[in-house]
């Protein structure tokens, strides 16, 4: 028996290694992986470069910061282009959408991660994912035909007529209650990003070690106190990163916003009244952009949007590393 085993092992070790083949396979794989990895960097840089070059006509005409500061967008007569209304519209809608969505989303995540019985949690989780998967054009058409008219009848009109009777000074701030405008777009955006925040926050909370919870329970904490004391602080990195990624999504969201924001290219914007965002102006005007300067200005907006999205994603990565317990260095 022993003898046989020895024989077998001797046989295995005497099989010649296909050294050259193995060496080659290693190298080929390394080279392929290296270039694929590198290509992502090149792709991102290339896109930024192309956008910048295409927009450079506009940057030359108005100056880089002049373009960003310019508040007139007139492709018809004066051919003056400024991105400020769209930057403003994008920032306001997405930041407020995040503000509206954050706490409900966190509450849903807490419910899913901490309270829900397994089967209810599973059902809700799948529904949340389903909502995230609805194409934004479908959300947009629902917004156009159901949500916006409803908001107009039930919210904007009553408020507007109240203000016209009692506080006429408010009217320009509130704006025309046509139903399609900043508030409608912001609320729809909030609905669209809730699933993202929920999913990421839930995952972060589920990763909190059992020991942390037990330590809090052991001190005599109630369930909510355990969540507040042990779970949320531990998961804060994931929660914040999720929120910022959702903000990035809100900034880039195009279709639903373009369908609902009313598309008004010039200041003044108002709370209920129409406005525009960077993505919405691009999608609305790229077909009619006949003049070089107009097209170049749209490209320039695209470039700014690219930079802002990049910055938001970098910020998310930075925050994750800086304040998370699980992801980065323990504080």
């Amino acid at each position: 028996m022993d003898n046989k085993n020895q024989k077998a092992s001797r046989n295995i070790s005497s099989i010649p290694l296909k050294a050259i083949y193995r060496w080659l396979g290693d190298r080929i794989f390394l080279v392929v992986a290296f270039f694929l990895g590198l290509s992502i960097i090149l792709l991102a840089l290339g896109m930024a470069l192309v956008l910048y070059q295409e927009g450079s006509l506009s940057f030359k005409e108005f100056g880089f910061f002049g373009f960003m500061r310019g508040s007139t967008w007139d492709p018809g007569v004066t051919l003056t282009f400024g991105a400020l209304p769209f930057i403003f519209g994008t920032v306001v809608t997405s930041v407020f959408a995040l503000a509206i969505a954050f706490f409900p989303a966190l509450a849903i995540a807490i419910f899913l991660a901490e309270y829900a019985p397994r089967w209810i949690g599973g059902v809700i989780e799948n529904l949340v994912n389903l909502i995230a998967a609805i194409p934004s054009v479908v959300v947009g058409i629902w917004g156009i035909f159901v949500f916006a008219p409803w908001m107009r009848e039930k919210v904007y009109m009553p408020l507007w007529s109240w203000s016209s009777e009692n506080a006429p000074a408010l009217e320009p701030i509130l704006g025309n209650p046509i139903g399609y405008g900043m508030t409608t777009a912001t609320i729809i955006l909030a609905l669209m990003i809730i699933p993202f925040i929920t999913a990421l926050a839930k995952d972060a909370m589920r990763q909190v070690p059992k020991e942390q919870r037990e330590a809090a329970y052991g001190l005599g904490a109630t369930r909510w106190e355990v969540i507040r004391m042990a779970v949320i602080p531990y998961a804060r990195g994931g929660i914040m990163a999720g929120a910022i990624l959702a903000l990035g999504r809100a900034i880039g969201e195009t279709m639903a916003v373009a369908m609902l924001i009313g598309n008004k290219n010039t200041f003044p914007f108002s709370i209920f009244g129409p406005a525009a965002t960077m993505p919405s102006v691009i999608i609305n005007e790229f077909r009619e952009a006949v003049g070089n300067l107009h097209l170049s200005s749209l490209m320039a907006i695209g470039f700014i949007l690219f930079i802002i999205s990049l910055a938001v994603n970098l910020l998310a990565a930075y925050i994750t590393r800086k304040i998370s317990i699980t992801g980065g260095k323990i504080l």
Binding site: A215, A216, G220, A230, R236, I325
Partner: peptide, 17 residues
């Protein structure tokens, strides 16, 4: 649990506090 304190196998300080 307020009257019966517990110390666990792994040290469990709340890391952010």
């Amino acid at each position: 649990r307020r009257k019966i304190g517990m110390v666990f196998q792994k040290p469990t300080p709340f890391p952010t506090m």
